[in-house]
Simulated scan of single mutants.
Amino acid sequence: MTTVDRTETQSDADAVLAELADVLTRFRRGDFNVRLTRRSGLAGDVADRFNEVVAVHRRSTREVRRICRVVGREGRLTERLDHEALDGGWQETAGAINELIDDLVRPSREIARVIEAVAAGDLTQHSELSIDDRPLRGEFLRIGHTVNAMVDQLSSFTAEVTRVAREVGTEGKLGGQADVKGATTGTWRDLTDSVNLMASNLTNQVRSISQAATAIAQGDLSRKITVGAKGEVAELADTINSLTDTLRVFAEEVTRVAREVGTEGKLGGQADVRGASGTWKDLTDNVNSMAANLTSQVRNIAQVSTAVALGDLSQKITV
């Protein structure tokens, strides 16, 4: 080989190495579009192999990006990398990514299963803390415990509210209160307090109404419903209080007329029950009619008796 040939060969080698250095630098920086120029001989073989490596990297990157999109964004949890078509470290890397997706999907599906059951009203389901004989760890374990605690809280709250509603509303056991263990803060505490306040108010209102009604039945017309109430319960309380007032006035008036006419001999007395209507008006009218008839009869008898006493035998009882 002449000196010129050796110089040209060295120059070609330097050019190949310079191109390789540039391409490797760009490849290291993540540029998977780089390629070595095709050449003959050993340099061509090296270029072909390098270009194949870059192509594999490019395909792998596209495939990983696709999996990230379809699994992470589109929610297609059954998609996986095709690692069977790869060899060696490429296959191991794809298999590791698939295993990562599996590890993420399994607890997510388990949590979704429990949440769907809760949404459907089934509070018996709990998140498994060991899936496929692989116990959950870290954040997955914490989330699993949190979901299970939520289900237990809902179950306890539902059971207690149902119990109080059954005891107060169906069985008539007043005074029931919900006791939801662990409900010390937040919405659960607010809901529990609201249910207990409702049950307490209902208990106080019904007991007050019952006491007033019992007093009326026993002839005690001094009792009134004083417990605070609104809406229909307030209307019912006002109605019973009005009933008590009407009964008391009616009783007082009937007693007065009976005393004046029957005991004190004051004839002509009439009961005056203000606002009386319906049966109360009929009863008042009957009492007044009885008092009026009795007055007329007694006065007529008295007139005749007085006339007889005075020697006037012409008078007769005409009432």
Results as ranks from 00 to 15, higher is better:
residue 166 R to A: 07
residue 157 F to M: 13
residue 157 F to V: 07
residue 167 E to K: 07
residue 176 G to C: 06
residue 187 T to Q: 09
residue 161 V to Q: 00
residue 166 R to S: 04
residue 167 E to P: 02
residue 193 D to V: 13
residue 156 S to L: 12
residue 195 V to S: 03
residue 154 L to Y: 15
residue 180 V to H: 01
residue 182 G to D: 12
residue 187 T to H: 09
residue 196 N to H: 05
residue 155 S to C: 07
residue 169 G to L: 01
residue 155 S to H: 12
residue 173 K to G: 05
residue 179 D to E: 15
residue 194 S to T: 15
residue 175 G to Q: 11
residue 172 G to R: 01
residue 193 D to M: 09
residue 192 T to W: 03
residue 191 L to P: 00
residue 195 V to C: 03
residue 160 E to Y: 03
residue 191 L to I: 13
residue 160 E to Q: 15
residue 165 A to F: 15
residue 165 A to I: 13
residue 176 G to S: 15
residue 183 A to Y: 04
residue 154 L to F: 15
residue 182 G to F: 12
residue 189 R to T: 10
residue 171 E to N: 12
residue 163 R to T: 11
residue 196 N to I: 11
residue 179 D to G: 08
residue 176 G to E: 13
residue 191 L to R: 14
residue 175 G to C: 10
residue 169 G to Q: 04
residue 194 S to L: 15
residue 163 R to G: 04
residue 168 V to H: 03
residue 157 F to H: 07
residue 196 N to T: 05
residue 167 E to T: 05
residue 170 T to S: 05
residue 163 R to F: 06
residue 172 G to Y: 01
residue 169 G to E: 01
residue 183 A to K: 05
residue 184 T to Q: 14
residue 195 V to P: 01
residue 196 N to M: 03
residue 176 G to F: 06
residue 163 R to L: 05
residue 189 R to V: 02
residue 180 V to Q: 01
residue 158 T to G: 09
residue 186 G to K: 08
residue 173 K to C: 02
residue 154 L to M: 14
residue 188 W to G: 10
residue 175 G to W: 12
residue 168 V to A: 04
residue 166 R to H: 04
residue 174 L to F: 03
residue 172 G to V: 02
residue 166 R to Q: 05
residue 156 S to P: 01
residue 167 E to V: 03
residue 157 F to Q: 03
residue 165 A to V: 15
residue 158 T to N: 13
residue 160 E to D: 08
residue 175 G to K: 14
residue 154 L to Q: 10
residue 186 G to M: 06
residue 182 G to P: 06
residue 181 K to P: 08
residue 189 R to K: 15
residue 171 E to C: 01
residue 183 A to D: 11
residue 178 A to I: 13
residue 155 S to D: 10
residue 193 D to E: 15
residue 160 E to N: 03
residue 156 S to E: 14
residue 160 E to K: 02
residue 178 A to K: 01
residue 163 R to W: 06
residue 156 S to H: 09
residue 156 S to R: 14
residue 181 K to T: 15
residue 158 T to P: 05
residue 162 T to V: 05
residue 160 E to A: 09
residue 175 G to A: 10
residue 161 V to Y: 07
residue 165 A to T: 15
residue 155 S to G: 13
residue 186 G to V: 03
residue 183 A to N: 12
residue 180 V to S: 00
residue 187 T to W: 08
residue 178 A to G: 10
residue 162 T to C: 01
residue 156 S to Q: 11
residue 169 G to W: 00
residue 176 G to P: 00
residue 193 D to R: 10
residue 176 G to T: 07
residue 155 S to V: 06
residue 190 D to I: 12
residue 177 Q to N: 05
residue 181 K to E: 14
residue 155 S to M: 07
residue 173 K to A: 06
residue 186 G to Q: 09
